[in-house]
Computed example of a mutant assay.
Amino acid sequence: MTITTGLRLETLTPKNIEAALGIRIRPDQEHAVEPVAHSLAEAYVWPGVAWPRLIVDDGRPVGFLMAFLDIDWLGDGSLVRSGLWRLNIAADEQGRGYGRFAVDSVAAELRARGTKELYVTWHPGPTGPENFYLRLGFEPNGETSGNQTVGVLKLS
């Protein structure tokens, strides 16, 4: 199956919240990304920073993403960054280009806001998403956030 022309991001609403909450990743990936409900709780307490979206293909929910916009990265006001906070592609929808669409969509949103770099973090290891992000052009920048690798994609 390939991505169709009906692929889009939707803002979360009362009409699609259950679809978003129903997105389930593969069990072997659960250590690497929080469930959608956790992301939505974070979006609630980070208004204006969190940018949650449902990924829909021809009316069918296939994933969820949440970007972070202009977050105080170090907590002291000295470094502001934007990027991809969460990416959950439904287990039976993986490998069809939806993850790439999600990253491209966040990149387009950040470019429109004048942002020059897109940041992401990932759990290292064989069952983590590192290879996915590296294939999309992210480069580790030598930092870690907790136990996660920090990667950056230049948007210019």
Rank of each mutant, 00 (worst) to 15 (best):
T127E: 14
F101A: 02
G125K: 11
G75D: 02
D92G: 02
G75C: 01
A50W: 00
A107F: 00
E10R: 10
G125E: 00
W122D: 07
D92W: 10
H123A: 15
W73E: 04
P35R: 13
G128S: 15
Q94V: 09
V120S: 00
G99R: 06
D72T: 02
Y133T: 04
L134A: 15
A20C: 09
P124Q: 14
Q148K: 15
F138W: 04
D58M: 05
L87K: 07
G128Q: 13
A37S: 15
N147A: 14
W85P: 07
G59L: 08
F132P: 03
G95K: 01
D76E: 09
L9Y: 11
A91D: 05
G59I: 00
G77Q: 03
G22C: 10
F132E: 02
A91V: 03
T144I: 13
Y98P: 03
T5F: 10
R53C: 10
S156K: 03
Q148G: 11
V106L: 03
E117K: 15
G22Q: 11
W51H: 11
S105Y: 08
N16A: 04
Y119T: 09
K154P: 02
L54W: 01
R60M: 12
E109I: 06
S82L: 09
S39M: 01
F132L: 09
G137K: 10
G83A: 08
L79G: 02
I55F: 00
I89A: 06
F64G: 02
R53A: 03
R60A: 10
S105P: 12
P126H: 15
V80D: 04
G97F: 06
K116C: 10
P35F: 12
G22Y: 03
R111H: 09
R24W: 03
E10S: 00
P126S: 15
P35S: 11
S39L: 06
I55E: 00
E109A: 11
A67P: 10
A102Q: 07
N147V: 14
E139C: 12
G128C: 14
L54T: 00
D76I: 07
L155D: 10
A50H: 10
L87E: 03
R26N: 05
G83T: 04
E109F: 07
S78H: 11
R135Y: 01
L87M: 09
G22D: 12
A91L: 05
A37K: 15
G77L: 09
W46C: 05
V152S: 03
P124H: 13
A50P: 04
G75A: 01
T4P: 08
T144F: 14
T13G: 02
L7R: 04
W46S: 06
P52T: 09
N16D: 03
V106A: 09
R113E: 08
T144V: 13
M66H: 01
T2V: 12
G99H: 08
A50V: 02
E139M: 11
T11Q: 03
F138I: 00
V36R: 03
D70S: 14
K154V: 10
E42H: 07
A20L: 06
A32T: 13
V103H: 08
T149K: 02
G151W: 07
H38M: 12
S39Q: 01
V62A: 07
R111A: 06
P35V: 11
E143C: 12
R26Y: 05
G137E: 09
R53T: 00
K15V: 13
S105R: 11
T11H: 08
S156I: 08
G97T: 08
R53K: 13
G146H: 05
L136W: 01
G125P: 07
